[in-house]
Design a protein around this nucleic acid. Structure first.
Lengths: 135, 135
DNA sequence: TGTTAACTGGACAATAAAATCGTCTTTAGA
DNA sequence: TCTAAAGACGATTTTATTGTCCAGTTAACA
C-alpha cells in the first residue's frame, strides 16, 4: 500500500523542474544529486516521463530536461500514473473479472470508493499550487 | 499503490469466517478452496491473524479457525494492518527523518492528508456491515 | 571537425514480496 | 493408544522492484 520509489522519485524530479522554471534546463545528474536519487535510476524514470509527454529532453552538451507544460497543468496523478500505471488499491478494482466473486462481493465497493477519493485528490493537486505553498 | 495479495487474502478469509458465524469452525483448506487462495499461503496469513488476536485457531482433527470477535468489532483497517503493517502511502509519511527535505517539502502534506482519509475510511468499515450489504 | 557533456537503451545484480513444499506437532475420536 | 485431520514452522523457488553498469547516440562549442 505504497507508491513505488520510482513514482516518488518522479514526483520529486518534476517538482524540482517546476522550481527552476519551464525555460531552464537541468541535467539529470544535477536533479539526481539535489534530490538524492540514484542517478542511473532517475535516467530511466525521466525517460518514461518524457515518453508520457510530461517533459522534454534534449541530448548533447548543454542538454537536459525541462517540463513540457506549465506546472499548473501537471497534476500529481499524472506523474504517479505515468510511472506506476493506473492507481489500483486492490486487484479486483478496475479490471473486470479479476475477482471471481464479482457480483456479491461486499468488499469491492469499499476499495472502489476509497480509490476514487484518492484519485480525485491527486488529480486536484498540481505542481503550481505545490510550488506556491513551499515559498 | 496496492494492498498486498496477502492483505486481500486476509480480508476475504475474515469475511468468509464472518459469514459462517463466530461459533462455526472452518478448516484453512476449506477457506482456501472457497476463496480461491493458495492453501499454504493462507496458512501463514491465518497464523499472522491469529497472532494479531483477530481469530482463534485450534489444532488437531476437527480443528479449524474462527473469528475471535464479533464481525462488527473487526474493521477492514485492522485486518489489512495486521498483515501489511501500518498503511503508509509514501515512505516520507509517518516515520520522521525518512525524507531529507522534511521541512520545506510541499508534497508530504498531500500524502499525509490522503492517507488519513483512506485510513479513516477503512477504520469505519467493519465486517458486520459488509455482511449485511451482501445479503 | 574533434571533444565533451548529456540522454538512450539493454543487460545485469541485489533485494523484497509472493507463492510453494515438506516436515513436525497437536488433538479428537475410534 | 492409534490414526487421521488439522495447524505450525522452516526452507526453497519464483517473480517484481530497485538499483547499477556500460556501450551507444546526439549535439553544442571550441
Amino acid at each position: 500500500m505504497q507508491i513505488t520509489r520510482q513514482a516518488d522519485y518522479a514526483v520529486r524530479a518534476v517538482l524540482h523542474l517546476a522550481r527552476i522554471g519551464t525555460s531552464e534546463r537541468a541535467a539529470t545528474s544535477t536533479v539526481a544529486k539535489e534530490q538524492n536519487i540514484p542517478p542511473s535510476f532517475l535516467a530511466k524514470i525521466i525517460s518514461q516521463l518524457s515518453i508520457a509527454g510530461l517533459l522534454h529532453t534534449s541530448r548533447g552538451a548543454r542538454g537536459g530536461v525541462t517540463l513540457a507544460r506549465d506546472p499548473r497543468d501537471i497534476t500529481l496523478l499524472e506523474v504517479v500514473e505515468a510511472i506506476d500505471g493506473p492507481i489500483q488499491l486492490n486487484e479486483c478494482v478496475g479490471s473486470e473479472g479479476a475477482c471471481t466473486f464479482d457480483e456479491s462481493c461486499p468488499i469491492k465497493p469499499v476499495w472502489c470508493d476509497a480509490q476514487d477519493e484518492l484519485v480525485q485528490r491527486l488529480r486536484g493537486t498540481n505542481f503550481g499550487d505545490m510550488l506556491v505553498q513551499s515559498k
